[in-house]
Write a protein that binds this DNA or RNA. Structure first.
Length: 385
DNA sequence: GAGCCTTTGAAGAGA
DNA sequence: TCTCTTCAAAGGCTC
């Protein structure tokens, strides 16, 4: 479905039915955009890069002055020209030292961006893709391959693995314990995990073998992994708000309705599978941070967004395919899960507040600022005054 | 400490 | 069917 081969890539070949139409659409669109993209890359990348760089300079270096206000379009534009002048010379080199196919050329780094900060142990695209087979046959499951790097160890020390990484890691054992410290709910952990890790596919039949060591209450209830004695969650599962559960004696104080509501609220959240860009971002974030000594995710994401567009079709196809695999795996792990489950949980933002204050200027989900701001909000329960 | 910012893509909701 | 909205990650920042 995801026509990954159509682009002459060869990265595809997955024959699954879970391909998202978006991929095809994306590529179709890019078929046209690609020209622009290539033109962009070939003709004037430095200009764009310089602009981006300058804005980043404003944000990162000039943050104290408050000249660059992240999130406010046009903010810091005054300082931009100055920064442009300063940064134009180095921008392209510094931000995009990779005119070559990016993810696989870690060895090339702009000198000014490699001030000893870059560490190849950080999750890199290479690392991720090493777990991802070249799709030699349709319907085949990926064979775990030895990673080039020893560990996926982000700077903060907590392994951040995608589903695919997680389940295909040849050394999955330590991950759950570490992850659980930060973001994973561990409902039924037993001390006898070592043997559990080594379980073979068994009932999980078609999943990679490493999947089997993972179970979760939701899984055990609904995914055909009945009777597993222990649960080892994976990165997609986090406790709500990352908070500790109430102690039993606390619960006794609650009314039944309250406890029920609480119980509902305390259900571990199953996160959405990462899309292609998210996977790409996760891979390249550390690299950008290292190269440009940036830490603000907003700025980093801007860079990554541009880099994403600068990627070749084949390179993007890798991530689309990877994302498709993640979705497939996610689907298998949580058959009953729907994105609806998390809908509205996170963003209870005061949209009314925003609309009141920025009528006409609020950025929509597509990152643009629609002129017709008077468009009626589909649901605004609080607008009754 | 919750939420914002910023990106793209997937998917849900509603017209 | 189309448009709009929300959520995925991330970490500094603001209130």
């Amino acid at each position: 479905m995801p026509q990954l081969d159509s682009g002459g890539g060869g990265a595809g070949g997955g024959g699954d039915d879970l391909g998202a139409p978006d991929e095809l659409l994306a590529f179709q669109d890019e078929g046209e955009e690609q020209d622009d993209k290539n033109r962009d890359i070939a003709a004037g990348p430095e200009r764009d890069l310089a602009e981006l760089k300058s804005s980043l300079v404003n944000e990162s270096e000039g943050a104290a002055g408050g000249a660059g206000i992240p999130g406010v379009p046009g903010a810091g534009a005054g300082a931009r020209s100055e920064a442009e002048a300063l940064g134009r010379e180095h921008a392209a080199q510094r931000l995009f030292p990779d005119k070559l196919p990016e993810p696989l050329e870690d060895g090339l780094k702009a000198p000014e961006c490699t001030s000893g900060m870059y560490k190849e142990t950080v999750y890199s695209a290479f690392n991720l893709l090493m777990h991802y087979p070249p799709a030699s046959g349709a319907g085949q499951h990926p064979q775990p391959q030895p990673p080039l790097h020893k560990a996926n160890q982000p700077p903060h020390g907590v392994p951040q693995l995608s589903l695919y990484e997680h389940f295909n890691s040849p050394h999955p054992t330590p991950a759950p314990a570490d992850i659980s410290q930060k973001q994973v709910h561990r409902p039924l952990q037993t001390p006898d995990l070592s043997g559990f890790y080594s379980l073979t596919s068994g009932s999980m039949g078609q999943l990679p073998h490493t999947v089997s060591w993972f179970t979760h209450p939701s899984l055990m209830l609904g995914s055909g992994v009945p009777g597993h004695p222990a649960a080892i969650p994976h990165p997609a599962i986090v406790p709500p708000s990352g908070k500790q559960e109430l102690q039993p004696f606390d619960r006794n104080l609650k009314t039944q309705a309250e406890s029920k509501a609480e119980k509902e609220a305390k259900k571990p959240t199953i996160k959405k599978p990462l899309n292609a860009f998210m996977l790409y971002m996760k891979e390249m974030r550390a690299k950008v941070i290292a190269e440009c000594t940036l830490k603000e995710s907003a700025a980093i994401n801007q860079i990554l967004g541009r880099r994403w567009h600068a990627l070749s079709r084949e390179e993007q196809a890798k991530y689309y395919e990877l994302a498709r695999k993640e979705r497939q795996l996610h689907m298998q792990l949580y058959p009953g899960w729907s994105a609806r489950d998390n809908y509205g949980k996170k963003k209870r933002r005061s949209r009314e507040k925003h609309q009141e204050s920025t009528t006409g200027g609020k950025r929509n989900a597509f990152g643009t600022y629609p002129e017709k701001a008077a468009a009626p909000a589909p649901f605004l329960p609080m607008t009754v005054l």
